[in-house]
Design a binder for these strands. Structure first.
Lengths: 109, 109
DNA sequence: GGCAATCTCAACCGAATGGTTGAATATGCG
DNA sequence: CGCATATTCAACCATTCGGTTGAGATTGCC
């Protein structure tokens, strides 16, 4: 799996991992807390986090005995940019999207 | 693999399939012509095309003994919108993003 | 009809995936 | 120290994946 896009897309292909990313959108989380809502072992979640980490979609920082997981959207952005090249469905560039985001946030608060 | 995003992302995870999509960006192609530049059997490419087709990323139309492959960017668009929601900062209202998309497209053409 | 061309099917193979369990390794706390 | 908490490691298992090969099934052409 040499190309970084391979890792990013195949990490995104799993619904558990996408759910984890969505959770991390809210806030950074410890491994145990990430695992809590899922009906699977902690070891399985630990593996999923490893895959997300190796794909660059999250980073993990050890603090004490707790490992904090943090969303890292750069790899997502690369994948997104790749998809943009199929621009038949959207003439949107990321800069425009960021301006959109900024205005959304400005409106909200 | 119940969720449509599962199929889309895991189809995109393979470099051969991404290359095929890029080729189809140029023009519709017959299966044999798709297979030509790759160093693998026709049957393997046929399988890849089946996966892309089941993911909704392409459609295939039989005409005579030739099966034409056509890029179908709707599934790509769904996946792209999902990813955009992770934009660098905060959670984004998808409805708002769709309105944004619509207005962008309206402006362009 | 006969033959080449186009594409899929079926069976097989090795490697990767997604899960399990039980043990191991740190770390924090009373 | 002794114990609970947090996380990973290692071995295992069933299933899927990405490829192969050889044999079909259609279709077009002379």
């Amino acid at each position: 799996m040499s190309h970084p896009l391979d890792a990013a897309f195949s990490a995104l292909a799993d619904p558990t991992r996408r759910a984890i990313l969505t959770m991390l959108l809210e806030d950074d989380m410890a491994v145990t807390d990430v695992a809590e809502p899922f009906d699977m072992s902690l070891a399985a979640i630990s593996k999923h986090l490893g895959i997300l980490s190796r794909a660059g979609l999250i980073t993990q920082e050890q603090r004490g005995r707790v490992k904090w997981c943090k969303l890292e959207p750069d790899a997502l952005r690369d994948a997104s940019i790749w998809m943009q090249s199929f621009g038949q469905f959207e003439a949107v560039n990321l800069d425009a999207f960021e301006r959109f985001l900024a205005s959304e946030l400005a409106d909200d608060r």
